[in-house]
C-alpha cells in the first residue's frame, strides 16, 4: 500500500541547513496500522507531510498504491490527497463556516464520491448525530477531532495519515477518540500511519517505528 524508500529532506532557515530526514524507508500493507514515534524535531511530522504530498522530498521515493507521489506535480499530489489519502490533523482544521454534517461529508464531496448513508453512519458512530447542525466553534475539542476523523473516513481513503490526532485532547478523551478511529479504520480496511508522542498510544498500533534525528532507529 505504502512504500517509502531512502527519503531525505533538509530545511534551510537563516542560512542554516538542517537535515530533518536522512534516508528513511518503510512500508505499510493495506489494513495495517503503524505508529511513528520520536522526540520533537525528530522528523516524524515532516515524514507524514511528505507522504501526504503536502511537501516534496529532496530525494527518495514514496509510492502509494501504484502512484509515485514524488513524481507527481502539485495537481497530481492534490488529486492523490483527494482520492487515496486522508489526513487527520492535530489542529482539526475544520471549515468553521460549515456545519458538522457538511464538514464530515466535505472530503467525500471534494473527491466526488459522496456516500450519504455511510456519512450518516459515521456521524452516528462518532456520537455526533445530535450535533450535526452545529458549527465547529460550538463543539468541544474532542468533538471537533471526531468531526475531523469522520471527514477523513467519509471519503474511504486507502491510507489514513494521522498527525498527533489526540495531541490537543485530554487523556481520557484522547483514548476514546483513538478507539473510535481504530474501529472505523478497521471497518474501512484502510492502512493507518499515526504520528504520536505517546508510547502508550503507539502500543495500540500493530507496528511501531521510532525516528531519531531523521533516521529510523533499529
Amino acid at each position: 500500500m505504502l512504500e517509502v524508500r531512502d527519503l531525505k529532506k533538509t530545511f534551510r532557515s537563516s542560512g542554516e541547513v538542517q537535515q530533518v530526514l536522512r534516508g528513511v524507508s518503510l512500508s505499510l500493507e493495506r489494513g495495517a496500522t503503524m505508529a511513528l514515534t520520536g522526540e520533537s524535531g525528530s522528523g516524524k511530522s515532516t515524514l507524514l507531510h511528505l507522504v501526504a504530498g503536502l511537501d516534496r522530498p529532496d530525494s527518495g521515493t514514496i509510492v502509494i498504491g501504484d502512484t509515485d507521489v514524488t513524481a507527481e506535480d502539485d495537481r497530481g499530489r492534490a488529486a492523490l490527497r483527494r482520492g487515496k489519502v486522508g489526513v487527520v490533523f492535530q489542529q482539526f482544521n475544520l471549515i468553521p463556516s460549515l456545519t458538522v454534517a457538511a464538514n464530515i461529508a466535505f472530503q467525500a464531496r471534494l473527491a466526488g464520491r459522496e456516500d450519504a448513508p455511510w456519512s450518516a453512519r459515521l456521524t452516528d458512530r462518532l456520537g455526533l448525530a445530535e450535533h450535526a447542525r452545529k458549527y465547529p466553534e460550538q463543539l468541544s475539542g474532542g468533538q471537533q477531532q471526531r468531526v475531523a476523523i469522520g471527514r477523513t473516513l467519509a471519503a474511504k481513503p486507502a491510507l489514513v495519515l494521522a498527525d498527533e490526532p489526540t495531541g490537543n485532547l485530554d487523556e481520557e478523551t484522547g483514548e476514546r477518540v483513538l478507539d473510535l478511529m481504530l474501529d472505523l479504520v478497521a471497518e474501512t480496511g484502510a492502512a493507518l500511519l499515526m504520528v504520536t508522542h505517546s508510547s502508550r498510544l503507539a502500543q495500540r498500533m500493530e507496528r511501531q517505528l521510532h525516528l531519531e534525528r531523521g533516521a529510523i532507529r533499529a
Partner: peptide
C-alpha cells in the same frame, strides 16, 4: 486563510 490551507490539504489544487 486557514480554510484555504485546509482545502489545499484535503486535495484542492492551488489553481
Amino acid at each position: 486563510r486557514p480554510m484555504f490551507r485546509t482545502l489545499r490539504a484535503l486535495g484542492l489544487p492551488a489553481a
